[in-house]
């Protein structure tokens, strides 16, 4: 398992640095590119957690879809030259984030987790499919998700339509 450990550390450091670049870079376009790097690192984290289907979905939806949307919105709004300055709440927001991190870190390091030693399922695609679509599974949320996506598409079209 030493390979998984090395992969986790590399991906975690890349992901955190990319997320920091998203927040702290002045150029909006460059922070969008760092966001793509952060999404890729998160996909790698899923692979180290033996969630192969979820890693592929992450690359398809986030790296392929949402980042294109974000870059398109940046191009359409032409705000790149103004950068992304902070507002007046920069110091309070920093304090809130640090306090949140401290509280959550303290809590989860002092909780006795009931770890299981069973081997993870691999590949996960069959199990996920039978849980999503099978008997007694999540078929109703799947239908609701389809309706939600249709409503989101229609809402986006209506919002950006020329008058």
């Amino acid at each position: 398992m030493i390979g998984f450990d090395i992969a986790f550390w590399i991906l975690a450091i890349i992901g955190v640095i990319a997320a920091l670049m998203v927040v702290f870079l002045r150029n909006v376009f460059r922070s969008a590119l760092s966001l793509i790097l952060c999404f890729l690192a998160v996909a790698g984290i899923y692979f180290t957690l033996s969630a192969d289907f979820l890693g592929a979905v992450q690359i398809l939806v986030y790296v392929g879809g949402i980042s294109v949307l974000v870059i398109l919105a940046i191009m359409l709004t032409r705000e790149v030259q103004y950068g992304s300055p902070s507002n007046k709440l920069r110091i309070p927001a920093f304090i809130v984030a640090i306090v949140f991190l401290g509280v959550v870190g303290y809590t989860l390091l002092n909780t006795p987790w009931q770890l299981s030693t069973a081997a993870p399922l691999e590949p996960t695609t069959t199990s996920i499919a039978s849980m999503l679509l099978g008997e007694g599974g999540f078929i109703l949320p799947v239908e609701i998700a389809a309706t939600l996506l249709l409503a989101a598409i229609l809402g986006a079209i209506v919002l950006v339509r020329e008058k």
């Binding site: 955190v16 927040v23 922070s31 984290i45 992304s84 902070s86 507002n87 991190l101 390091l109």
Partner: peptide, 29 residues
């Protein structure tokens, strides 16, 4: 590497996102 490492990574990423959502002016950011 165990569960705590992943949870700490998750908490760090969430805090970075929280700071960005609270402190930035640009709506896309």
């Amino acid at each position: 590497v165990g569960l705590e490492h992943y949870l700490i990574l998750s908490a760090v990423l969430f805090s970075i996102g929280l700071y960005g959502a609270l402190a930035k002016k640009n709506a896309i950011v």
